[in-house]
Write a protein that binds this DNA or RNA. Structure first.
Lengths: 106, 106
DNA sequence: TTCAATAGTTCCATATTCCTGAACTATGGG
DNA sequence: CCCATAGTTCAGGAATATGGAACTATTGAA
């Protein structure tokens, strides 16, 4: 199992962020994390997203969000905790995240 | 040749817009159109984008931008004129377009 | 320590989307 | 009518995404 990597703020790209959030499923997941701070367990999230998402797909979604720099994931025991990097990202790309979440109606 | 269709403002979706602009090439094209209003000819644009983009790809890019509701295209004689719908879109999704263009540095 | 349960990741085959050269269409001029 | 210009469409190969099955990591209990 390869270690979890979080890109540095300076290396984030608009295209990766837009790509990550251009999927409504991922946007919903991110909105959930950003709203609640520290969302535990994929299963909890999949319910939050109201759809039945296979866990492998969910895992991929988290990976895409993480690699875009939108979330930070850390393992706590057997589970994974995900935190929003929205504040940081907002420093680099002001207004981007809020505008996107608002466009989606989150 | 099927007629050019422009989606109504109410039918635009954030995901289509984010997807369209998650490609740096397309974002650059859109920024160019938004900045100059009425950019003529694909070839002119491809130069503007500084890269050599095949015209079939360029045509696809315009299609994606058009179907996302970001531009309006009209034929004038043998060529095509493209206008930004940024103002309209901004009414529907406030701040979205400016934040994206600014994130890209346009 | 070993075993089982839980949470998530990785692999891989399938499906979908993207890219682009080549052929085609549309328009205007000579 | 034919040619040139501007752009679109088609086709198939490349790249990505999806999701089931197998695997890994961690905890807790026997």
């Amino acid at each position: 199992m390869r270690p979890i990597v979080h890109p540095a703020l300076e290396t984030l790209s608009p295209e990766a962020i837009l790509h990550a959030l251009s999927d409504p499923e991922r946007a919903a997941i991110f909105a959930e994390i950003a709203a609640s701070e520290c969302v535990e367990r994929c299963s909890a999230l999949s319910q939050a997203a109201t759809r039945e998402i296979p866990k492998s797909s969910l895992s991929q979604h988290f990976k895409v969000l993480r690699e875009a720099g939108l979330i930070r994931s850390e393992r706590v025991g057997v589970e994974m905790r995900n935190y929003s990097r929205g504040m940081e990202v907002n420093g680099r790309f002001p207004g981007l995240i809020p505008a996107i979440l608002s466009a989606y109606g989150f």
